[in-house]
Design a protein around this nucleic acid. Structure first.
Length: 766
RNA sequence: GCGGGCGUGGUGAAAUUGGUAGACACGCGAGAUUUAGGUUCUCGUGCCGCAAGGCGUGGGGGUUCAAGUCCCUCCGCCCGCACCA
């Protein structure tokens, strides 16, 4: 009896596919195309189980579609710019490029050992000058077309390292390396004007029929369209130029309950006051230590400072409200100023109680006798409401009508206007880092910012840089930085900011269609291959990456790099769950010490001990595999031991693809045993030559029914992204075949048919 | 804090549209094969109960002839929050 030997079979066939370029995609107008793409990996060093899951799923689709007669494009590349390469450069005194390309070599080898049906001839890395040269060309076209602006934006500033920090590098308000308190700081930044396209990006979501509802909903909420009232409060005692404070509110119907006006610490009025009021300056400085993350701002204790300035209520000039600076008001949303209505907003109520501001009684009610609520009462938009304190003679039926009536009233009397507002902010792309695509712009004292001429592209990153000092090496690289102005020829300097890596990943899928073209895209290739028919990746990208890509394709269409039909690049989207594992830890000197799965042994009753020391190990939560908790299984070790097919089969079994899957040893063993079982079946079963006999008995008919029911179930499973159900059907068919021991020509025929179907149906998976 | 999702046996999960809850697999139990273990094969396995029977889809409430599925509410876990990729 033979055994399936993955260690021999897999490299053999992988080499054969490589040799024959079996998965090379060529344009062929005679055949329907299918473009399946998984989110390309960041070359962090080694592939992880999340990659295995992602690429195993994509490969099922690619091989399935190929088997159904489609001309399949299934490419792979590398999202290769980013911070980790610079961190590695600092830690190991290497060049980020060296580190990155070494990682790519390792990960390419590892991916190849998975037996994926990829067209490797199209491979590229975003840090290849050939790629970012084209990206710079796109930037120049988009700059000319008005999609890009230079404006102030807020960053995290580390005053010791003298560098800008990413939000994830700010830990408890301190820089991760220096430990110094981080400050919010404004800088001139390049930004894509994505908010100009907010309405189009929002309304087009309706047409993304094959995207998960949750992603469409998240994107809608992220764009966050609202209609409200914008109006000004006249100030008393404010510095010159601040005679009015403009506010935006989505609930103008609560205006009669206003008890204060709040402005952001970054509001122009707050800044004006800072200059000669030390209390204001101190308060604003404290607010700026909060960093830039919205979650941090929202979770922080709500604090405020009375500016001493007052404003008049628009409906009653004698009604004065105090102006407070409050740390929870975002400068980026609306006008950076609000009015607070404690009766109808919980946060405002908490704020008023804390600072002893007047709380006006509830003047909205659901019914006749609603008392003054202990908690703020938000008048529902869809239900019947009633104004208790009459609002200037208006009467309404629902909260929404109250809003509309108030806006109409304000417009009629000329003190405010109804406006549409979006939560979506412009996309700041400037990064004060070396390892990214240089922004192709030159700063000249007389001409201002001047685009680099297309003929001078690419603006290549200089190789001779060091990371032994804080800050961006480009800033101190005079040979690279100092250039003549393209316009006037005077001494000028290059822009030293590089592009956000999200730019790189916003069009790579289009580049895969013609990766060696001398222009960003080639229309013949784009017309044939775009759009991506199926895109697969983690749900953590549900908003930013996907939204930026949608924007970028619109901008590429407007600059003639894509057809209008590719404005929405991804026809169908699937978001997969994470790969998780148990965590193991021991206490050492009162501290938690995490252990890797290899350091832990489980006995029959499920208790865990540390290998070697035999101390008892506590089994913690099952969480996403991560280096910090050490609950990581290395795919390469699994592939060496069991083969890629076992790893792939396990990944596709049991757990629905959109849900998290827990990696377990038992599960891997089970997958391995099943593959052996199928191999054995082929050896053991008698199945003839497939000739159909004249008569077919009941047993053979039952087996044939099973075969065809499996064909239907497996097909539906793959089409519906329920690979676990396909796998279950394949188990059923395998069980039925193993039990079909009867002799006879009809049984030989039914077994032949069943085994053949089994092999074909398993082939996209293993 | 805000936005989104998830919760079904010991475990991963099935359950077209509101219509027999637990397909399939892991694990476990019993038996067979094997020098032994692994492997392989057969049978059993939601929970309580000797049984009859009862109870069961995170908790509570509701709609319905009928609820895992729809509605309300609470709890728990996970993802995102704009400079991680």
């Amino acid at each position: 009896m033979s055994r399936y030997n993955a260690r021999e079979a897999e490299p053999k066939w992988q080499a054969a596919w490589d040799e024959a370029e079996s998965f090379r995609a060529e344009r062929d107008p005679a055949r329907p195309k299918y473009y399946v793409l998984e989110m390309f990996p960041y070359p962090s060093g080694r592939i992880h189980m999340g990659h295995v899951r992602n690429y195993a799923m994509g490969d099922v689709i690619a091989r399935y579609k190929r088997a159904r007669g489609f001309n399949v494009l299934h490419p792979m590349g590398w999202d290769a710019f980013g911070m980790p390469a610079e961190n590695a450069a600092m830690a190991n005194n290497t060049h980020p490029g060296t580190w990155t390309y070494e990682n790519i070599a390792t990960m390419r080898r590892q991916l190849k050992s998975m037996g994926l049906s990829l067209d490797w001839t199209r491979e590229f890395a975003t840090c290849d000058p050939e790629y970012y040269a084209q990206q710079q060309a796109l930037f120049l076209d988009m700059l000319e077309a008005g999609f890009i602006a230079r404006r102030k934006a807020v960053v995290n500033w580390d005053p010791v390292d003298m560098t800008v920090l990413a939000n994830e590098q700010v830990i408890d308000g301190k820089g991760w390396r220096s430990g110094a308190p981080v400050e919010r700081q404004e800088r001139q930044q390049w930004a894509f004007k994505i908010s100009d396209m907010a309405d189009d990006l929002l309304s087009a979501i309706d047409d993304l029929k094959d995207w998960p509802d949750k992603v469409r909903l998240m994107q809608s909420n992220w764009i966050g369209k609202s209609r409200g009232l914008e109006f000004g409060f006249k100030t008393q005692g404010a510095p010159d130029g601040h005679g009015e404070v403009a506010v935006y509110t989505t609930r103008p119907d609560t205006l009669m309950g206003a008890s204060f006006v709040g402005i952001s610490p970054d509001h122009p009025l707050a800044k004006a006051l800072e200059a000669d009021n030390p209390d204001v300056a101190a308060f604003c400085a404290e607010c700026r230590r909060l960093g830039t993350s919205e979650a941090d701002l929202e979770k922080a204790e709500k604090k405020g400072l009375d500016t001493g300035i007052t404003v008049s209520h628009p409906l009653d000039p004698n009604w004065k409200l105090p102006v407070w600076i409050a740390n929870f008001i975002l400068m980026d949303y609306g006008t950076g100023a609000i009015f607070g209505c404690p009766a109808h907003d919980q946060r405002d109520l908490d704020f008023c109680r804390k600072y002893d501001l007047p709380v006006i009684d509830t003047f909205f009610a659901l019914d006749d006798d609603t008392p003054v609520a202990k908690d703020a009462f938000v008048p529902p938009k869809t239900e019947k409401v009633r104004w208790v304190n009459h609002f200037a003679g208006l009467d309404v039926a629902t909260g929404q009508e109250a809003i509309d009536a108030t806006i109409a009233f304000a417009e009629e009397h000329g003190w405010g206007k109804g406006v549409e507002n979006y939560r979506l902010r412009d996309w700041g792309i400037s990064r004060q880092r070396y390892w990214g695509a240089p922004i192709p712009v030159i700063h000249c004292e007389t001409c201002g910012t001047v685009p680099v001429a297309k003929a001078d592209l690419p603006v290549k990153l200089p190789e001779d840089v060091t990371f032994d000092r804080p800050g961006n090496p480009l800033d101190r690289h005079d040979a690279w930085r100092k250039v003549p102005c393209p316009k006037c020829g005077a001494d000028a300097t290059r822009e030293t900011d590089t592009m956000d890596t999200f730019v790189d990943s916003s069009w790579y899928f289009a580049r895969f269609c013609s990766p060696r073209a001398e222009t960003p895209t080639d229309s013949a290739d784009i017309d044939y291959w775009m759009n991506v028919d199926q895109y697969i990746g983690g749900v953590e990208h549900a908003i930013l990456h996907l939204l930026y890509s949608r924007f970028f394709c619109r901008a590429m269409a407007a600059t003639q790099h894509l057809p209008q039909s590719a404005r929405e690049p991804f026809n169908a989207l699937f978001t997969q769950g994470m790969v998780t594992h148990e965590t193991y830890s021991v206490k050492e000197d009162g501290k938690t010490l995490w252990l890797t799965p290899e350091e832990v042994q489980r006995d029959e009753s499920g208790n865990a001990t540390r290998i070697g020391s035999r101390e008892s190990v506590s089994i913690g939560a099952t969480t996403k595999m991560s280096k910090s908790k050490k609950n990581v299984i290395d795919p390469e070790a699994i592939i060496e031991q069991y083969g890629a097919d076992t790893a792939r089969w396990f990944m596709l079994s049991d757990s629905p693809p959109e849900r998290d899957v827990e990696w377990t040893n038992a599960g891997v063993e089970g997958a391995w045993r099943f593959l052996q079982r199928v191999w054995r079946l082929m050896d053991d079963l008698k199945y003839g030559d497939g000739a159909k006999p004249d008569s077919i008995g009941d047993s053979a008919t039952a087996l044939r029914r099973m075969t065809h029911s499996a064909i239907q179930g497996v097909t539906e499973g793959i089409e519906g992204f329920s690979f676990n159900k396909s796998v279950a059907k394949l188990y059923e068919l395998t069980n039925a075949l193993a039990k079909a021991k009867e002799t006879g020509a009809d049984m030989d025929f039914a077994r032949h048919e069943g085994l053949r179907a089994l092999c074909i149906m398993m082939s996209p998976m293993v």
